[in-house]
Design a binder for these strands. Structure first.
Length: 479
RNA sequence: CGGGGCGUGGCGCAGUCCGGCUAGCGCGCUUGCUUUGGGAGCAAGAGGUCGGAGGUUCGAAUCCUCUCGCCCCGACCA
């Protein structure tokens, strides 16, 4: 519940975020270090995210399944890069039933290994392919520094794991999923993203190609908001995922995996939130509109509630996710601030004046104060509200896109690059060498975000070393 | 793991340096009345083994020793 004011984003962005998550009632700190409790309001938001994605995955031929939380330690040792990448952050179960276990069990940090093991049992023939399975659940990584939603020890996600007969098909899958992620961000979350390929150093442990969608937060830092990997035959060889092709030759599968996690909630907060609190895109908001009845006298109350109740029923019937705030122990002003903190896109005020005139006052969350307030007739409110919600959804994306584009720089020199990444992203030619990437990281504390698919036609010179370079990359500070 | 901060009712803190009697304050919570178009007012209540263990002392939130945990800033990660 909103008690007092947030720090402003400009004053202390990190603290603004921490307090907002608690005050918007999204999540709370759990008794175990680094773990969070996702509260009902936060989970409702997550459910809106997952239900859209789930439907898209199903449309593209994927099916859901569940694999165990515990994975034999030895599985992790089968793929060299994978174990190196994850070893530092594994939680390991050593005892069960009061006895020390013969083989230690890892609490899954991701499920490539156990799913690889199962796939090798299930896949025998080219007729078994492609195998397209998604698991919804949580994973555990022993993180050193945690922050609610953005980086917690346990987090929620889906992980898609697919096996294919050919490299082309597997790569197509990787790109298909990235497109779904992009569509989700643009249409549902109203967050503009850049699709591209990760550099060798930023790649997922065990992947041949890692692609990502990158979003810019309000503080201009980048957040990797989704990833899709192509493994080639790495995991197929480690787990012997093999099939007989139509000419009776034994072949290794080509596999992929991909994920969007509950971290995306952090992105929504940091892209759209303002100094009053959370701002949710209407398509994902658990509550799209809240009715606040206003009255002074008992007689007013009867008249106002009659109208408010009627409108509530009409709007519910029209399919709007709606809340009636008829609490009588807090003032209207408190309610306004409270719902703003929670990011509800539209507030509908119904007072004695509205009852007289047959109107309501609509206040849109994305535009504060008078600018966002309008008075509309009660008749046809469902259509007016739907129109307003659609408009809010569009303006959020437009605003975020303009903000991002205004903060992408095109430095001419290395000196300029070091400067611009302190408060924005740089889009520059890069020779794709590890040396130049490391140099930027050391000099400017910025990393390569991704090499976007969308590239200029001409070639250029690496911003760091000056060598001829085919592709441009985004540099920025990242979460 | 390095640096910094902090553990006292649900939350935020004071008290700790310099030990003293029933451990305070604000917010929130409960009940009642008045309120409600931008964070309401009054009144009466409930709620704390002062993070934990050991020690010093007639007496410890306060002093000593050990310990546990959390938050923030750096190196790795979705």
């Amino acid at each position: 519940m909103a008690e007092d004011k947030l720090p402003t984003r400009a004053d202390d962005f990190a603290e603004w975020y921490n307090q907002l998550v608690l005050k918007a009632d999204l999540a709370d700190y759990a008794p175990v270090r680094g773990c969070m409790v996702v509260k009902p309001y936060g989970w409702a938001l997550w459910e809106n995210i997952t239900s859209w994605l789930d439907a898209e995955f199903k449309k593209t031929g994927h099916v859901n399944a569940a694999f165990p939380t515990l994975i034999p330690m030895s599985f992790f040792e089968k793929e060299k890069e994978h174990v190196e990448g994850f070893a530092p952050e594994l939680a390991v179960v050593t005892h069960g039933g009061g006895q020390e276990l013969e083989e230690k069990l890892v609490v899954r940090p991701t499920s490539e290994t156990i799913i690889g093991y199962m796939y090798s049992k299930w896949i025998k023939s080219w007729r078994d392919l492609p195998l397209l399975i998604v698991q919804w659940g949580s994973v555990l990584r022993w993180e050193l520094r945690t922050k609610l939603f953005l980086r917690t020890a346990e987090f929620y996600w889906h992980e898609g794991h697919t096996a294919h007969a050919s490299a082309e098909e597997a790569k197509e899958e990787m790109y298909r999923i990235l497109d779904i992620y992009e569509e989700f961000c643009l249409q549902q979350a109203a967050i503009p993203v850049i699709k591209g390929t990760k550099s060798e150093t930023e790649r997922f442990a065990g992947a041949q190609v890692t692609t990502s969608i990158e979003a810019m937060m309000w503080d201009k830092r980048a957040l990797q908001s989704g990833t899709s990997h192509y493994f080639g035959q790495n995991f197929a060889k480690a787990f012997e995922i093999q099939y007989l092709d139509s000419s009776n030759t034994l072949q290794y599968c080509e596999t992929t995996s991909w994920a969007i996690s509950s971290r995306i909630i952090g992105a929504i907060i940091m892209v759209h939130g303002d100094d009053q609190g959370l701002v949710l895109p209407p398509r994902l908001a658990p509550v799209q509109a809240v009715i606040v009845p206003i009255f002074k006298t008992p007689e007013d109350k009867v008249r106002v509630m009659e109208v408010a109740d009627r409108l509530f029923k009409e709007l519910k019937t029209a399919g709007i996710r709606l809340k009636m705030d008829d609490r009588d122990n807090v003032s209207s002003g408190f309610k306004f601030n409270d719902w703003e903190m929670r990011g509800v896109p539209v507030r509908i005020e119904v007072g004695p004046k509205d009852v007289e005139k047959g109107t309501v006052a609509l206040a849109r969350r994305d535009k504060p104060g008078k600018e966002g307030k309008s008075f509309v007739p009660q008749a046809g409110l469902d259509l007016a509200l739907k129109g307003l919600l659609a408009d809010i959804q569009d303006s959020l994306l437009k605003r975020a896109t303009e903000y991002r584009d205004a903060n992408i720089h095109h430095p001419k020199t290395y000196e300029e690059l070091k400067q611009v990444v302190q408060d924005g992203w740089a889009f520059s030619y890069w020779c794709e060498s590890r040396e130049c990437e490391t140099k930027v990281k050391e000099d400017a504390k910025a990393t390569t975000r991704n090499i976007p698919f969308d590239q200029p036609k001409e070639e250029g010179a690496c911003i760091v070393c000056g060598k001829p370079s085919k592709r441009k990359v985004y540099f920025g500070k990242a979460y």
